[in-house]
Structure formats: structure tokens, C-alpha cells
Computed example of a mutant assay.
Amino acid sequence: MGSLEGTVALVTGASSGIGEAAALALAERGAAVALAARRTHRLEGLAKRIEDGGGRALVIVADVTDRAQADDVVARTVAGLGRLDTLVNNAGVMLLGPVVGAPVDEWERMVSINVMGLLYCARAALPHLLQAAESGPRNVADMVNISSVAGRVARGGSAVYNATKHAVGAFSEALRQEITGRFVRVSLVEPGATETELATHNRPEVLDTIKARFEGVERLRAEDIADTIAYIVTRPRYVAVNEMLIRPTQQQG
């Protein structure tokens, strides 16, 4: 893989799972990494791991569902690390269950984080990504938006989660068309079942359904998705990986 020396990456939702693994993978390839999430202790522990490995990390405690905080995350990244070459829009939640009788606050939470938080960060980052693409060391910049297989395949029991991830896919493709000629690449990563904390925020009866669905399936690890992100952003300037769907081998849908 190519080197990310001299570049800066911002990873949202960096306190666990795919975000944590992505931050480590990008740091290993030479990027300075801004770590954004709400859990201070988790972020500080991750920053120490990166710094102990010889990298640079900046901890930013924030809630990206608040537009002002999302703007501030990007501003603090550029102020603290000097530029912004890569945005990994990873912050998100997955709250499943039937539509009938669903707690509406779960819907609102998913739309706020999965859609609006991603949009706020994308908007704030774009001027800096465009600027990075016009200068060294790589003359290209990347926005990687983390979606899900749920952004491709609608299933009963996950209607609103499906809706948020389909929105991420539509936004990513439209934005790609707008800015790809300026060497800012927009990539969509769609993981299937992955062993992270994502599912643990569901209600007990929903957790039972998820467990039954994937009984006997060896799930992906966060590091598998991080490896995919690292592959995407280290491609040569003329190569854009627009979309990547990754499922466990045993996952059928």
C-alpha cells in the first residue's frame, strides 16, 4: 500500500469498532489522525496507542449531530494538525425493530447520527479536502462514508436503518459526481455483519433476533473494514474506488 506520510485524517466515531481500527490503520501508514467521538477515555487510550507507535493523534471530544460541534471538529483538526486530506465518516448507530410500535426516538437518533452528522462533517471538511487535493504530498484527497449492506438491501425489521444508509449511498454518489474532477474521491464502504459494539445498543428482543439471524456465521472484524479503508485511500491519484460491499463469506443477504 502507498504511504500517507505528510497527510492528515479525521475519523468520526473513533472510540470503538471500525472507527478505532481505521484510525490505527491510517496512522500505521503515516497519517496524523484526529480522533472524534464522545467518549473521552476511549479516545485518549487510542491516541496513546498511536503515539506509542510513533504516530501523531489529536483527541476531539464532540457530538457530530450538533452542527456547530461538527464544524468545530474539522476546524480543530486543521488548526491542530495543519491540514485535512482524509475524512472517514464513520459515526453511526443501528437500532433495529419493526416499524409498528417502534420507539420514534430511535428513528430520530439514527437520522441525526447516520445522516445529519455525516452531512455536517462532509460539508465542513469539503473546503479543506479540495485544498489538499491541490497540493502535496499526494495531490488527492478522500472522503470515505461508512454505510452498510443495509444501504443496498432493504429488510423487514430494519426499515429506518435501511433508509438512513440508502441516504448515505445517494449522497455519496451525487457528491462524487460534483467533485471527482477536482481529485477529491468519495468512497462508500458497505460492511455486512461485523463484530463491533454497534448491535449492542438495541433492545433485548431485537438483540435476540440479530443473534438468531447470524447464528453460526463468522462475522467480519473491525480490522477487516479498516484494511478496506486503508486500501481505498492509498490508491494512486488516478484510481478511485467508489463503492465496496464486504460481507462475511457465510452471510447470504
Rank of each mutant, 00 (worst) to 15 (best):
S187H: 11
M110H: 04
E205V: 05
F183V: 05
R38G: 10
R155V: 14
V11F: 11
E106Y: 09
E243D: 14
E178Y: 10
V11N: 11
P127V: 01
A174G: 08
V160C: 03
S3K: 09
T164L: 09
A226E: 08
T180K: 15
I229M: 14
L46S: 06
E28L: 13
T77S: 02
I246V: 04
I146T: 02
A91F: 08
G82Q: 02
A68I: 03
V140L: 04
L24R: 15
M94N: 13
S172P: 02
S158T: 12
V8T: 08
E20M: 14
V140D: 09
I18A: 05
R185P: 11
R221Y: 13
A31D: 06
T77Y: 02
P98V: 05
Y238V: 13
E134P: 07
A122C: 13
A25Q: 08
D105M: 07
S16Q: 15
F183G: 03
V33K: 00
T209D: 14
I210A: 08
G19A: 07
H201Y: 14
L87M: 08
A122T: 14
I179K: 09
E51D: 00
V64I: 09
A21R: 01
E178F: 07
N89M: 07
E178K: 08
M244G: 06
V11H: 12
Q250N: 10
E190H: 13
T228Q: 15
T7N: 06
G55K: 04
T164K: 13
T200V: 11
G82A: 00
L129T: 04
A25L: 04
V115C: 13
D72Q: 09
A70G: 01
L84I: 04
R109H: 12
R235F: 12
A132P: 10
L188I: 01
L96V: 03
V140M: 08
A124M: 01
V189A: 00
V8W: 07
I113W: 03
G55L: 03
Y161R: 05
E44C: 00
G45F: 05
P103W: 10
F171I: 13
T249N: 07
D224V: 01
A25W: 06
L87R: 08
M244S: 13
L188F: 01
I225V: 15
G6M: 05
A230H: 12
A193T: 02
R123M: 12
A240Y: 13
V186M: 10
D52N: 10
T196H: 03
V115L: 15
F183P: 00
A230I: 03
A193I: 01
R182N: 05
A163F: 06
E243W: 12
E195R: 06
S147I: 05
L95N: 01
